[in-house]
Amino acid sequence: MIFPNTVVEDRRAAAAQTMGIDLDRRSTADLAIVATISAVYFIDLLAVLFMLWNRRYPPIKAKSPILMACLLLSSALWFVGDVQMNGHVTLANTVLTNCRGLGFWVRILLGVCGVCAVFALRSFALYHVFCLNLPYRGMRVYLPIVVYSVCILIYGIVALVLKSTATLYYVDALDLCSTAVPFKASVFAFVWITLAFVAFNYWRIRGIKSSFNESREMAGACLLIFATMLFMTFVQFLHPRFPLSLAYRITSTVLSHLCTNTIWWGTMAIPLWNCMFHRKEYLDKWVDKLRMDGLQREYHVDSSSFIQGEFTPADIAMTEAVIAKQSYMYKSSDNYGFFYANEGGATRTFINTGDDVFIGQGGGIVEEDAHARTISWLHSRNSKDAGFGNDRHLL
């Protein structure tokens, strides 16, 4: 029984009194915090499953769903470690007395460092895509992950090789985990080096031209994570016995996971909500925004497949008929062919790139206007991305 355990709490209180230490017993406040944050993470889990199920939905895909899933997983592992290290539950006679396993490997390496690593990779990806104009794939993705993983692995193995009193160890009398000061300093140095890399990358992307405020998202995330880690650093070194104080341990746990959840939902709430309730309308607005900003390539708007339900058999048949006749009004190069036909009083535009056919729809506009819009769009984007205005498009 990890909470509450009256026998253990009485023993802790007696030991603290003998040592001249103030101790706040574990109470219903601890239980309430653990239960509430656990419920929040259960809701987060449902949101992550929905996000991964709809990961091909372009507004979600643009947020790097795999990275966002890793962010929440690392945050949840951080919480598991906080439950142990911050002293919210009874540790005696449970697996929670393994301070190095849960307190260091789970909480620090996979949790805190995992969260920081996701921010670092996200900022690094934004720098490659928006500043260097390079696709973020191949060795650009894998090399930083491999290097950081190797560093974490080496650090973790060294911590296991050292004796427990030099790293993290269980204090039976007080039923809590304690950390040797030099080791604690090395842990925070490792975390702050990672955060320094995040800050450096954010500085490099501060002026990027993006359609959906990625630089602002990163600014908010950096501000929150830096404030949280600054608070944790001061608490750990100025009040090393903070798990014995109800106010300090609750504040520490709540602040940490309020930070990570605010960052996650601040990034994913809008695309998830609209994917669920306004899927088609939001997608149209999302793509129109990309067209106006000219950032289709940066957001990986792909022209290789149809959006399900976007095209009717009549659309395809009409396109095939027009292409077969090879009767086009304008051809700008060997790569593009523009075809027009009337259907129900509306002028429909067909763009043939040689590989794909894109179908646009005008609202009863005359052929000259449709032609002008098409040429204007083509000149504004030196690529094969499809669509213009409110026309239907391929993604």
Rank of each mutant, 00 (worst) to 15 (best):
C131P: 00
A29Y: 13
Y299R: 05
S256T: 10
W203N: 06
V301S: 02
I270L: 15
V191F: 02
F104D: 13
I193G: 01
P59Q: 03
S245M: 07
L160M: 12
V198Y: 13
G294I: 05
I323Y: 08
T347D: 03
S304L: 12
R12T: 12
D293P: 01
G207M: 06
K61D: 04
T374Y: 15
A62F: 07
V171K: 02
R381S: 12
R216N: 09
F234M: 14
T90M: 11
L272G: 01
I208M: 15
R122Q: 14
L224A: 10
I323D: 01
Q236V: 00
G114N: 07
S333H: 14
A221H: 10
P4T: 08
N382R: 14
N335W: 11
W78R: 04
F237G: 08
N213G: 03
K280Y: 04
L52T: 00
G103P: 05
G309R: 08
T18F: 07
F200K: 11
V191L: 12
F234N: 09
W265H: 08
V158D: 07
S376H: 08
T167Q: 04
F119D: 00
F183G: 05
C177D: 01
S383V: 01
L121A: 10
A269N: 03
F188Q: 02
L132Y: 00
H393E: 07
G345A: 06
S64P: 00
M268D: 03
G220N: 13
I365Q: 14
V40P: 00
C116T: 13
D293H: 14
K63E: 13
I375D: 02
